[in-house]
Design a binder for these strands. Structure first.
Length: 207
DNA sequence: ATTAAGATCAACT
DNA sequence: GTTGATCTTAATG
């Protein structure tokens, strides 16, 4: 389990809120593209109203309930794939959402996957953009991060880490009681914070 | 089978 | 600041 092919699974064995800041500065690689993580969010399984695992195990989130060191992918908003690193002891369904990073290798490949991009810093600035830059799809879900095709290379954690409420999480899991978003302060590849917005009209006036 | 909502991004004003 | 795009998943009948 420990030090398996360079991926020290002991680091991933703790609670997501401890693992998440520890991953800042580490590198995710797929094919020729490598991303240095600058922004992540922790999701703590059944205890976390913001987690996909909150309402129990389903076919979609089954990977989260498995062993640490695997990739949990999901598809959202009709067009976007997002990637998580499963952590904590197996069965706790905890994971760290990879929200942003700096493309340090393979920028040409990453850019080719984008229809628009204004600057190199935008290539992986946001969870869906990060997945796109690496070419991660739903088919990569469940992959062993020590073996690939998506590989996690642990590095020395970032020294400066900021934290705050999670982005895009609706309901009770998104408020300040869960300051489980972690980022490297001042880094240009951290995604802009956007509070959750309801997608339907807030209320009808004829009420 | 049908419906409602989603851990978002990009374009437009 | 606001709004549209677009597909998967899970819950319900």
């Amino acid at each position: 389990m420990l030090d398996r092919d360079g991926l020290d699974c002991g680091v991933l064995a703790g609670p997501a809120v401890e693992v998440a800041p520890r991953l800042l500065g580490s590198v995710v690689r797929r094919g020729r593209v490598a991303v240095r993580l600058t922004e992540v969010e922790a999701y703590q399984g059944a205890l976390d109203p913001g987690s996909h695992a909150y309402r129990g195990r389903t076919p979609r989130n089954a990977v989260m309930f498995g062993e640490p060191g695997h990739l949990y992918t999901y598809f959202t908003y009709g067009m976007h794939t997002c990637a998580n690193v499963v952590c904590a002891p197996g069965g706790t369904a905890s994971a760290v959402l990879l929200r942003g990073g700096e493309v340090i290798e393979g920028a040409d490949d990453a850019r080719a996957r984008r229809t628009t991009s204004r600057s190199p810093a935008d290539l992986a600035r946001g969870p869906a953009l990060l997945a796109t830059a690496l070419g991660i799809t739903l088919d990569d879900g469940g992959c062993d991060l020590a073996v690939g095709p998506v590989v996690l290379e642990l590095r020395e954690p970032a020294v400066a880490v900021a934290s705050g409420p999670r982005t895009g999480v609706s309901g009770p899991g998104g408020d300040a009681r869960f300051p489980w978003r972690f980022w490297i302060p001042g880094d240009p590849t951290v995604s802009p914070y956007r509070a959750h917005r309801p997608r339907r009209a807030p209320a009808d006036a004829s009420g």
